[in-house]
Amino acid sequence: MTPSKEDYLKVIFELNEVYDKVTNKLIASTLEISPAGVSDMVGKLIKSDLVVKVKGQGFKLTSSGNRIASDIIRKHRMWEVFLHEKLNYDEQDIHSEAEILEHASSEDLIDRLEVYLDHPKYCPHGGVIPAKDTVLQPHQLIRLANCKVGSRVIIKRFVDDQDLLDSLSEKDLVLNQEGRIASVNDYDGTIELEVAGRPVAISEKMAAHIFVTLI
């Protein structure tokens, strides 16, 4: 299993949490790779019985693909906790570092890191850290983009995407903040979220990658 294949499996898992249909174009955009390159790799993953294409839903992971994705997500999120809590990295900076470390880490190292960190359950972005040898289950949170005007929400998770995390940092949005959806622009889907008495404009794309619970 190469780092490239691991990245594809992780991305397909995470995209399926956000989008109703995971397409070649969506994977290419996320990984910043040409659609032709994605087609080639996804074809290999399908032949290896790690990915399937479901009519109307796009690409999904098989049970084997889910196990590998869960393992790499566990490594990634464990490193994010370490970088944030022990090395004092800012939340928006840990994702890119964890992307490198996840592929260079043995199971034994991650097991020891988990003990050292006192068995964390969530990464700093709100993602669940799966237990060893378990398959990560899709979360039950609500996309901010799916909430109605007037809804009061608590921010519970951000998707691990560097551009998103940088934008959220600029807007001073963090986990467990409460807010109210003041309006939604009919033209472009931009949400105005009132947080701590101030309006925050959130694009439709950003809102699809922010997960909340309703108050």
Rank of each mutant, 00 (worst) to 15 (best):
G37P: 12
L175Q: 12
D133L: 11
L45K: 05
D172K: 01
V22L: 09
Q140L: 08
T23R: 05
N16H: 11
L61F: 15
G58F: 05
L26P: 05
L50H: 12
E170R: 15
Q92E: 07
R157F: 12
R157W: 12
E14F: 01
K47E: 05
K171V: 03
M1K: 09
N176R: 08
N176D: 15
K5T: 05
K60M: 11
P199K: 02
K55T: 08
V149N: 04
I27F: 11
L26H: 10
K156M: 09
S34I: 03
I142M: 11
L26K: 13
H95M: 09
G150D: 03
L61D: 14
G150M: 04
L173S: 06
L173R: 01
I191P: 00
Y8D: 00
E32F: 11
R180K: 03
K60H: 13
T23L: 09
T30D: 01
S169C: 12
H139R: 07
K75F: 04
K55H: 07
A28Y: 06
L109V: 12
E14P: 02
S96P: 01
E97H: 10
E91R: 07
E204R: 15
E204I: 00
R77T: 03
T213S: 11
P3C: 03
T2H: 10
V184L: 02
S105K: 00
D186Q: 03
R112L: 06
A69E: 14
P3A: 04
F158I: 08
I142F: 00
V153Q: 11
E192C: 02
S151T: 06
Q57M: 09
V212A: 01
V135W: 15
Q92I: 08
I154F: 05
E91S: 04
S48L: 13
Q162H: 03
D108H: 09
L193N: 02
V128H: 08
T213P: 04
E80N: 08
K53V: 03
L9N: 11
N146M: 09
W79L: 13
Q140M: 08
N176K: 09
S183E: 12
A28T: 11
Q57Y: 14
D161P: 00
E85Y: 07
L173W: 09
H76Q: 09
E80T: 10
M78G: 04
G43M: 06
E80V: 12
V200N: 03
D133G: 06
T62F: 14
L45W: 06
E99Q: 14
T213F: 01
L214P: 06
T134M: 07
A28K: 04
C147P: 00
D172R: 00
E192L: 01
R180E: 12
L50Y: 07
